[in-house]
Each structure stands twice: as C-alpha cells, then as structure tokens.
C-alpha cells in the first residue's frame, strides 16, 4: 500500500464534508442538522491539521479556534432549538416557517 500522505487525509475530510452537506440539506430533524454542521466543521479541522504537517503549526491553532466556534454555535443553536420546541412542540425544520408567533 502507498505510504499515507497529505492527500489521503484530504480525501477523508472531503468525504466527511460531503456527508455533512447531505445531512444539512436532506434531514428534517433540527438536532441532526446541527450535528451535520459539526461534521462539516470537523472536516475543515481535519484539512487544517493535515496541512499543518506541511506548513507549520498555524493549522492546528486555527483548528482550535474552529472548535471554540463550534462550541459557541452548538450552545446558541441548541438554545434556539429549546426555545422553538417550547413554543411549537416539534423539532421538525419544515414547521419553522413563521418569523414571529
């Protein structure tokens, strides 16, 4: 088998990214959509860390920032989800069609 180079990691990251995109576009459950966004962020992280092996540690520092960002996003997103669930008793995105209620 070929030695593992940067390209191998990029392919895995691309696969994760595509999976995340499919999840976001096709699922109806808000929680799973948020999880798919986490998958996308992770794919980006994997890319950055893979490149950090070529161009220094900047990629790893950036991936830490992205993890911070993911934490913030998850907290706010889940807060919105709970507020929404309290009002409409559902977690289906297709039901989220009102700007104000």
């Amino acid at each position: 088998m070929a030695p593992i180079g940067t390209l191998h990691y990029l392919v895995i990251a691309a696969a994760l990214f595509v999976l995340g995109v499919i999840g976001v576009l096709t699922r109806r459950n808000v929680v799973i959509i948020l999880m798919s966004i986490e998958l996308i962020l992770n794919a980006v992280n994997l890319n950055l860390v893979a490149f950090s092996r070529i161009w220094g540690l900047h990629g790893q520092v950036f991936s830490i920032f992205i993890i911070t960002d993911a934490a913030a996003e998850a907290a706010v997103g889940l807060g919105i989800l709970i507020a929404f669930f309290r009002n409409k008793e559902t977690v289906n995105v297709d039901e989220i069609d009102l700007l104000k209620w």
């Binding site: 929680v31 948020l34 998850a74 889940l78 989800l81 559902t90 977690v91």
Partner: peptide
C-alpha cells in the same frame, strides 16, 4: 458539546419525530 447535544435530545421528546418522515 456532545453531552450538550444528548442533554437537549433528552429534553425534547423524540417519540413524535420518530414517526415523521425523516428526509425532506
């Protein structure tokens, strides 16, 4: 983050969403 997710999944009841159509 994943504990937060699990916490929220348990707070919102999922029985109903299980019966619904999963893919839009």
């Amino acid at each position: 983050i994943m504990v937060l997710f699990l916490f929220v999944i348990m707070l919102v009841s999922i029985e109903q969403s299980l019966k619904e159509e999963q893919f839009s």
